[in-house]
Nucleic acid binder design. Structure first.
Lengths: 238, 238
DNA sequence: CGTCATTTTGAGGTATTTCAACGAAGGTGG
DNA sequence: CCACCTTCGTTGAAATACCTCAAAATGACG
């Protein structure tokens, strides 16, 4: 399991601009900072369905996804499950409240992540503002994603939501196996829970987009965009 | 406009736990740090419908809400408007991407906020990790709220969404005018855009909850919970 | 006391959900 | 190697809930 992780030598921070005046010096994670994080990090390999942590557990660490795809979800009193987001290489996770994790995080494919214990991470951040700044950028990125997701699930149409989901996967850092195809490293159920639909609706939307010649699935775990124009006009909801 | 703001003497940070091991020393904003922020802050008074900034504008500052209620929203290509969140005293806002604000922020009632220019804020944060840490906690709080909101809008029922919205207002730091009533400092349209419903649906949900004896509106800007039990069982969706 | 914006109400259309059942894929054990 | 089982995905038909369009009612304000 969890092959081909060699190129990730440490916690990779997909740092994105937020608190970033046009021309300001953006603190990037330098080698020393990477080593510092690596020094307190535990590599964790997750098989599909493996948990990084579960909802309500004591929040003792923050995680950074090194490879693969991880879903962050919550089970509601209604019995439904809501996937609040998918996490890919470079994404940070471990959101907590009152010392407890608010979501469960489970790998949807062979994945690897770094575990950064708070006891060690917090002092390092308080001592290295540049590193802390990078963490802040990461969290900001997650916030942007959450808002995007929010807007996505309010689209009335299942087709639009599905297209936007595929577009999200396309722009993710997932490794592409065959050129032109988009990896779909999760089940229909995961997608449904992410889009706020039932699996039946996802299935029907898939069929409709397929028969309209917009996309084409090669098995359940890979999809190709056939009509880019139609696809973009559907996915462009934000 | 914007009266009774005297008790807020500086940027108040409703710091919430995230990166917080049970017993760790939680850095709180001390008086010196408050003064430092206040030193670079511009007080901005907003009349209802006044903008703090607009979508796509160059992001030159971060804001902290000092008083009132501010909606953060995005206009979609479809013509619909999505309110991604309401901001109250202590909330931070100014989310940007590639140097541009991603949302517009507009006061829904007389409000006041602090404007913290990035040019000055970033150096301060890089120099004071404790203060920076507090900022991170704030952003984390916004992330939690965004996820909660996400789950909220996926509830199928309009009644449930409305109840959860009222509950959100109840737990907000808005000043209560008459005891037992919950202030509703926004229009039905704002609520609809926040809940992903039409104003008609909000109106009907209101009527249904009212005729079920769960709530009672005193004018469009204040509501009272009559049946706490029913109310909570509806609002408890997260 | 008009005017404008907001809110409410009504009737019909439409998309998703629900319920039920079938089909496909992968793993286990005899 | 095949039967069996579990998980996952697909399809169909009816019900529900929200949306859309239209119009009346309420409230704020000059």
């Amino acid at each position: 399991m969890t092959k081909d992780l060699s190129r990730v030598s440490g916690p990779a921070l997909r740092a994105l601009p937020f608190f970033r005046p046009e021309n300001a010096a953006v603190p990037r994670l330098n080698e020393q900072q990477r080593q510092r994080l690596l020094g307190i990090a535990t590599r964790i390999d997750l098989k599909p369905r493996g948990f990084a942590y579960k909802e309500h557990a004591a929040a003792g660490a923050v995680f950074i996804c090194g490879e693969g795809a991880i879903k962050s979800f919550r089970d509601l009193p209604s019995g439904r499950r809501r996937v609040v987001g998918f996490l890919f290489r470079g994404d940070i996770f471990g959101l907590a409240e009152n010392g407890r994790y608010v979501n469960s995080t489970q790998a949807t494919m062979p994945s690897m992540c770094y575990r950064l214990p708070l006891e060690q991470l917090v002092p390092i951040m308080l001592q290295d503002p540049g590193l802390e700044f990078n963490m802040m950028l990461k969290i900001t990125h997650e916030l942007r994603e959450a808002q995007r997701h929010n807007i996505l699930v309010c689209s009335r149409s299942a087709k639009v939501r599905l297209a936007a989901c595929i577009k999200m996967l396309e722009s993710s850092p997932l490794p592409v196996t065959s050129p032109g195809t988009i990896p779909v490293p999760m089940t229909r159920t995961d997608i449904a829970d992410y889009l706020g639909l039932t699996i039946e609706s996802v299935s029907r939307a898939t069929r409709e987009l397929t028969s309209a010649g917009v996309i084409k699935f090669s098995g359940p775990r890979a999809v190709r965009v056939l009509n880019r124009e139609k696809f973009e006009s559907l996915a462009r909801v934000l």
